[in-house]
């Protein structure tokens, strides 16, 4: 149930809705549904609705209704009830699950994925099997964070769960597809990082001049498709 949550005021202009305490696809699906319903509801003054794994952050203008002298209940006291009412209502057509499926071409291994062999060794399988396994699954974007456009993906096969690197890199190349623990994600820009790099995509994950600026949004479904180094170079040229 999307109404099964705890609302915690975070700040005078922020509210956190907690749907669970763990990284879990069912919990995240409830977070995404709540986010869609609240977006569709267009609550006055609410400016950010940002899903995390098990929670939803709402930020609002505390003075959106009325003047600064504001009468009545302050928003941190009033909003939880209003949200509960909205989430209790049946899904409106606007709030239906998005059917976006985004395919991400990835050049696995080699210079693009310097940690592929380490991941294979840890998993006790061949590098080709790591690639086949990573590219076979269907993922869901649980949340974006860490850096603009960085997707945290749910759906990594348990065989590929590998603890983070003991020594994080100070610079990970943009487009790197990586595994950290039970999570897989893609570095949108050159960033520091402690995850294992298994490949790279030529796609640009984040570009502030684009609308929308991020390639992926929370709730999107994602598939990886293996490409070779020649195709990677060609796609980089055309990116």
């Amino acid at each position: 149930m999307t109404t099964d949550f705890v609302a915690e005021p975070l700040a005078e202009d922020a509210l956190l809705l907690r749907f669970g305490e763990s990284i879990d696809a069912a919990v995240n699906a409830r977070v995404q549904l709540a986010a869609r319903k609240l977006r569709a509801a267009n609550l006055p003054g609410v400016v950010d609705i940002a899903p995390a794994y098990a929670s939803l952050l709402l930020r609002f203008d505390p003075f959106a209704r009325g003047d600064a002298r504001g009468r009545g209940e302050p928003p941190h006291a009033r909003l939880p009830g209003e949200i509960k009412t909205i989430l209790r209502q049946p899904q409106s057509p606007d709030a239906r699950a998005p059917t976006r499926m985004i395919e991400i071409p990835v050049c696995y291994g080699g210079d693009c994925g310097p940690d592929l062999a380490d991941v294979a060794a840890h998993a006790g399988i061949a590098p080709d099997e790591v690639i086949a396994c990573h590219a076979a699954a269907e993922y869901t974007v649980a949340m974006l964070g860490f850096a603009p456009g960085f997707p945290y993906l749910l759906g990594l096969d348990a065989a590929l769960h590998v603890p983070r690197r003991a020594n994080p890199r100070t610079r990970v190349p943009a487009g790197s597809v990586a595994i950290g623990g039970a999570q897989t994600g893609i570095y949108p820009g050159e960033l520091p990082g402690g995850w294992h790099l298994i490949g790279r995509t030529p796609l640009v994950l984040f570009d502030p001049s684009r609308d929308p600026p991020a390639l992926l949004a929370p709730g999107d479904r994602v598939r990886f498709r293996a490409i070779d180094a020649v195709a990677f170079a060609r796609l980089v040229e055309h990116a």
């Binding site: 940002a50 930020r59 974006l144 964070g145 603009p148």
Partner: peptide, 9 residues
């Protein structure tokens, strides 16, 4: 820059 928290901004 409000409005882009869901995209990590």
């Amino acid at each position: 820059r409000p409005g882009f928290a869901h995209l990590g901004v």
